[in-house]
Simulated scan of single mutants.
Amino acid sequence: MDIWTYQSVEYVTVAGESWLASASEYPRSMRALWESRPWAPTVLPCGRVFDVISMPAVFGRAVLDELWASGPGCGPVASFRGRTLLFVQPGAAPRLRTLLAWEEWAREVPPLLCHGQGDAVTVPPIQRMVDAPVSPGQGAGRWIVAPDSREPWLPGAATVLWACVRASRAKTQPEVSEA
């Protein structure tokens, strides 16, 4: 039996695949590529359908926890080469970069890479082989929250900024023991 026909452990829905493909200048070609090689990572441009905020993996986990604990949650999120890739609204990357430039935020938040118009990012495969190794920082990356709709909710710059600030402050708060 062909290993590519097994049910994937991590996958992007058909609607999510359509959304991702719409970021490409040639969406039909992108979908054809994924049909023939669903396990291959892909490079997609930012700025049209989404921007991407890339952050260190551990900090990214804390930011995701803040996004889910304090409200709206998040849209698609991937892990690639030891970094968390948070998909955000188009235009949010340069806005977040500007907001983070304020001295009061820059001290608390680790360096973030804000990918917007004119940038491109490598996104994980739309499917992962069942037997593929999952080792942090290695391979083609993986989806933490896979795209599952044609119009996923994407956070804006202000939402991401406050999640980053809360995550960095929580990290620096001394633990209080209950006596």
Rank of each mutant, 00 (worst) to 15 (best):
D2C: 11
I3M: 11
I3R: 14
T5W: 10
S8R: 02
E10V: 00
Y11P: 11
A15D: 14
L20G: 04
A21S: 12
P27A: 07
P27Y: 09
A40F: 15
G47D: 05
G47P: 08
V49L: 01
V52Q: 01
V52P: 06
S54A: 11
M55T: 14
F59K: 10
D65R: 10
E66S: 10
G71F: 04
P72H: 11
G73I: 10
P76V: 10
P76L: 05
R81Q: 15
R83P: 01
R83Y: 13
T84W: 04
L85A: 01
L86Q: 08
L86S: 00
V88G: 08
Q89E: 14
Q89H: 06
P90Q: 01
P90K: 07
P90N: 04
P90M: 02
G91H: 00
G91W: 03
A93V: 04
L96I: 12
R97C: 00
R97N: 06
E103L: 05
E103F: 05
E104W: 06
R107M: 09
V109D: 04
P110S: 02
P110A: 07
C114I: 10
C114Y: 03
H115M: 03
G118M: 05
D119W: 07
D119Q: 10
A120L: 02
V121M: 06
V123W: 01
P124A: 12
I126H: 00
R128M: 13
V130D: 12
V130M: 12
P133E: 05
S135Q: 13
S135H: 11
G137S: 01
Q138I: 03
A140L: 03
G141V: 02
R142V: 07
R142L: 12
I144G: 02
E151N: 13
P152N: 08
L154F: 07
A158P: 04
V160T: 02
L161H: 06
W162M: 15
W162A: 10
C164M: 04
V165Y: 01
R166A: 14
R169K: 12
A170L: 13
T172H: 10
V176P: 03
S177P: 09
S177L: 10
